[in-house]
Design a protein around this nucleic acid. Structure first.
Lengths: 250, 250
DNA sequence: AGCAAAATTAACTGATAAGTACATTTACAC
DNA sequence: GTGTAAATGTACTTATCAGTTAATTTTGCT
């Protein structure tokens, strides 16, 4: 099942960003919907081209839809209706529904990676550095439920879109490198106990941060506990940092 | 629910004898349960009723489909085709697609709750009891990815089916009661440090157990680390128990 | 034996959703 | 200006899907 229809004839390869190498100058776009006149004639539908803007418009709208309804539940027609452009353009720029989803996913991963790169924990002592990294990770997940939900969706689909995305593979191990570095310093300082695998540290931090968002709804239903409430979130943040700290300390 | 014990049990699948597709004819219905005669002929239009069996058949098939494709991605026709009964019966017993999904979900929750109930950790000392509970939880998740995936799917849908299920609400807090009891004993014995909320212990155990299954695919893609591999799983199990132990110990 | 309720079957339907055909307009290079 | 490729709009097609209709058979009961 789920075969690719492969319509044939023309294959759009148009994934170029801006045709002009210029910086994205946000041109002011008049509503590009042409409206029909009362007499049935249509107004000389005048519109300004804005490929990059259209692309971004589609991407943002699509993200909301995929986040809310998953890949199978998302409706291309609904996305089209909520953009200021038409369904045709979705297929023009992204090929098909999965191509659109893939683009959304890649953008989401790019987001967290960018922030991670800007983290500089070198000035902090190992224990504080690890606590800061944990706090940052926890906050990023809590502040970006869209990202969390996209990853959930992708895992439901066995991450097969990550697998076929050229943009994501392997570049992400920077997170683990960072932990490895902090852990190494902690060992030297004698404040961390030896024998811990950096991957385990990463998995622990990620799991505790991710779960708090991903399973918020079911926890709420089953236990009546609202992890999204500001107070609960802060308490939990503390607890997570504490847990990670205890985990590595001598 | 039918209460009548099932009379004759035969797990027989039959090929769908397509009766030449003529329109609106009084039909001969060779059934899935019509059995082959000794001479190889099949008795026409004969089947044994087995409501309970049919129900279970549908439920099991549906679970596989929902687990694999989520609620929106699941196809009622596909479920029907894979049962030994027909689509009509799905609607007969479960009302609609969501009713079927809800039944699958309820069954999944009932499964873990039943096992939890049978856990008796009273004989163990607090530290060992908590370690045992953690190990059990970790193993249950790893051994039942279906359950994990259903919970993921349900969270994508904001747990609105849990919310409307009469069978699930509030009954599940036994898990936290168990932890509260262990934690209390640990405090008395002076082996656990005070000031920890039992909910945090539960969330930590659950998160670490859940994530290892729920995010297995994306972790594999992004970090090239296979958490499902037996060796990795066992190592991780150790680490999780260790983390939880450290978390509560003085 | 006969009847009503429960169980089961095959075929049908209306809606919807992904994807396409094709015309039209804009932007830009010369 | 004009030709052309990129960008965009409108309307359509085709498959699929959740849910139904209506007939038929089984079964428990009296």
């Amino acid at each position: 099942m789920a075969t690719r229809p492969t319509p044939g004839k023309k294959s759009q390869e148009t994934l170029k960003a801006s045709p002009t190498g210029q910086k994205t100058q946000p041109r002011k776009v008049p509503s590009r919907r042409s409206k029909a006149e009362p007499d049935g004639q249509r107004t000389s539908a005048s519109w300004t081209q804005d490929p990059e803007g259209v692309r971004r418009d589609i991407l943002a709208t699509a993200r909301a839809e995929f986040v809310e309804n998953g890949l199978s539940g998302a409706r291309v027609d609904k996305i089209a209706a909520q953009t200021s452009t038409s369904k045709r353009m979705i297929y023009y720029y992204f090929g098909d529904k999965e191509g659109l989803y893939r683009a959304v996913l890649e953008e989401a991963y790019a987001g967290i990676r960018k922030l991670e790169k800007n983290l500089d924990l070198g000035a902090l002592k190992p224990t504080e550095a690890l606590a800061a990294l944990t706090g940052f990770t926890f906050d990023y997940h809590a502040d970006n439920p869209d990202f969390v939900r996209l990853v959930m969706v992708e895992n439901i689909h066995h991450a097969r879109h990550l697998a076929t995305s050229s943009k994501i593979g392997a570049l992400n191990s920077s997170a683990i490198d960072m932990i490895r570095e902090i852990y190494g310093r902690g060992l030297e300082d004698g404040v961390f106990r030896p024998g811990i695998n950096p991957i385990d540290i990463h998995l622990t931090i990620s799991a505790l941060s991710f779960y708090n968002v991903s399973n918020q709804a079911s926890i709420q239903q089953v236990f009546g506990h609202d992890m999204a409430a500001p107070k609960a979130r802060l308490r939990r943040r503390h607890s997570v940092i504490d847990t990670v700290t205890q985990m590595v300390s001598v």
